[in-house]
Design a protein around this nucleic acid. Structure first.
Lengths: 341, 341
DNA sequence: CCAAATTTGATGTACGTAAATCAAAATTTG
DNA sequence: CAAATTTTGATTTACGTACATCAAATTTGG
């Protein structure tokens, strides 16, 4: 049988009230007594029954998700997953609120974070814009004892408790090796389409991609990065233009969102050419393109897993519990035609 | 605020005791009254507070994991993950016991399952040997109201509540496409190493592999399957033999466990040849081989995820709750050198 | 050494559900 | 219609923890 507070009291030779004072860090306990109790807790291996505790407290976790107001399939999917979590939230004693902020706007993000500092929710998850002022705002919250996790894109050098997202350097490296192997030693140029070099995840993907390309596939050369701002129209124009002008392009790596434009450009311009294409994020568009052969592989992060992981971690941190690290590692999915979910 | 049993009682105009009788399917309630209560439950959207209920019941879930006594890295890993779950079990009000059965022995499995029918644990997870008598034994347990999930390998045509494992046909297809693309249109023979064609997961992998090979890579021909019984020594001998005799082999697909022998054979026999190799299951051995270039890609199922998923599903079934399907889908991991965990 | 302040103990209520008991009411049976 | 039976209500205890109150004991300061 699992030990209870009564067992602690008996083991430490104190009353239940004193045990309670120690456990919940209430004042009015001498140092010697406190240590006696703490030793007893350790010795009998007491673990607080979180379910009973939450029942007693009538606790509901209040979590806030801060998402960028970007109009691309991935962010819509992320939003959907948060909504799905909200739908489940009553069962899980959680109260989840989402706040939309303009994308790539550190100022707006900082303002929201500061307001949340007063509100003191049980936990915060945010898609971080990687800027020093954001990092400082997050660190203030952490110092205040509010659990914070970054979602999808991390925050350089911050004290956030956890990052719920994929390793983007590894993602870029993987893309490079897949492309290199699929091209089987051919010589030519690779076009890279990104959203913006101002977000950390895109920078990291490119970094990993370029590193492996340079080291292991010297016959392939990377063209200057095309920045499509995750906008389908812009991506379409820029990619179509590049394909027209550069006849040496034999492969494409799309590391950002907004692949609709890319796919359209590929279908228009590359009917006669055989391009090998790797893209990020599984959406209706990329899925169809993978199935019809326009895209050869899709690298994906599962937004649902990221959201659920973020919630689990926030809950654990709020309760002062440990997380199962292996469970919370967000994996890079590689999809070919054959293993689509 | 979430509605409670009191709210049901008020809404239905009955007493708390009657609500309790309906909720816990105790006798002594007229049909009309039962329906009145059930309507009230539906109308006010009552959801049982599982935490409070378990507290009141003093419930601990007793789960049984039935694992084959196979001496290969994957099964050892699976065992480790179950043990890790046992270590966490006190916190989660679970009591997990593992039973080892001889591998590929339907009779032994059936006997254990029948014994468990009397013991009535809260749930059972088993690595199924795919035989009709096992299916029948499982179906009896399911009929008895005991939640059952299959782990890693499924049971054809059975009523099991859930399968916690990967789609092995998709895995085989994916292996074929990777191999085909990596070989880039070359002509030659492919050696396939399996454990045994008597287990369903291996049969399915081969099926998927052969299908895609035939349809999309006609220049590659599959040699007769080598059955290594998941035994390193045997695999070593058979693969070394094949490599010596067949000079046309340009690729290898190892779809079973026990890759140690395969790797040794590859290092001895294929120093001068360039083979493209795809193997299943990430272990210390396959990981090292991937890093040093002996293996080109590893397909993996995450044993930790499978075990945790099985537990979550068993718990949900025991409580009569819904599972989050997307969360319980076990994904096929594809590892290249660059995205190893 | 006494008064004041601090520390500790004893006790009760609450959270939402399960489970049991006994009495009261309603229904069915003969 | 009375007796037997079934159904329903009222009430209590328990699970493990949190939190509050008041009294008693101990320690500290002057």
């Amino acid at each position: 049988m699992r030990p209870t507070v009564h067992d602690i009291a008996a083991a430490a030779g104190v009353s239940l009230a004193t045990v309670d004072r120690v456990l919940n860090q209430r004042p009015g306990v001498r140092k010697v007594t406190r240590e006696k109790v703490e030793n007893a807790i350790r010795e009998i291996g007491y673990i607080r029954d979180v379910a009973a505790a939450n029942l007693a407290k009538g606790r509901t976790y209040s979590f806030v998700f801060i998402l960028p107001a970007s109009d691309n399939s991935f962010m819509h999917g992320l939003n959907d997953e948060v909504r799905a979590a909200v739908a489940r939230s009553s069962v899980e004693r959680t109260n989840i609120r989402t706040i939309e902020v303009p994308a790539f706007d550190p100022g707006a993000l900082v303002q929201i974070l500061n307001e949340l500092g007063d509100e003191r929710p049980s936990g915060i998850a945010l898609v971080a814009t990687d800027a020093p002022e954001v990092r400082d705002a997050v660190d203030r919250l952490v110092q205040d004892g509010i659990p914070v996790v970054t979602l999808v894109s991390d925050l350089t050098g911050s004290q956030r408790h956890h990052y719920a997202g994929v390793d983007n350097i590894a993602a870029g490296r993987t893309a490079a090796r897949l492309l290199g192997r699929f091209l089987g030693g051919a010589t030519g140029e690779i076009a890279v389409l990104a959203g913006s070099m101002l977000v950390r995840d895109h920078r990291e993907r490119l970094e990993g991609f370029a590193a492996v390309m340079a080291a292991e596939f010297p016959s392939l050369s990377i063209l200057p990065v095309i920045e499509g701002r995750d906008d389908p129209e812009m991506a379409h124009m820029l990619v179509a233009d590049a394909l027209s002008k550069k006849s040496g392009i034999i492969g494409v790596y799309s590391l950002g969102a907004g692949n609709r434009g890319l796919i359209r450009a590929l279908k228009e311009k590359a009917v006669d050419r055989s391009l090998t294409v790797i893209a990020h994020e599984l959406t209706t568009h990329t899925r169809a393109a993978l199935l019809d052969g326009t895209i050869d592989a899709i690298l994906n992060q599962d937004a649902g897993h990221e959201v659920r992981s973020a919630i689990r971690v926030l809950k654990a941190k709020a309760d002062g519990l440990a997380v199962i690290e292996a469970q919370e590692r967000i994996r890079l999915d590689i999809f070919l035609k054959d293993n689509l979910p």
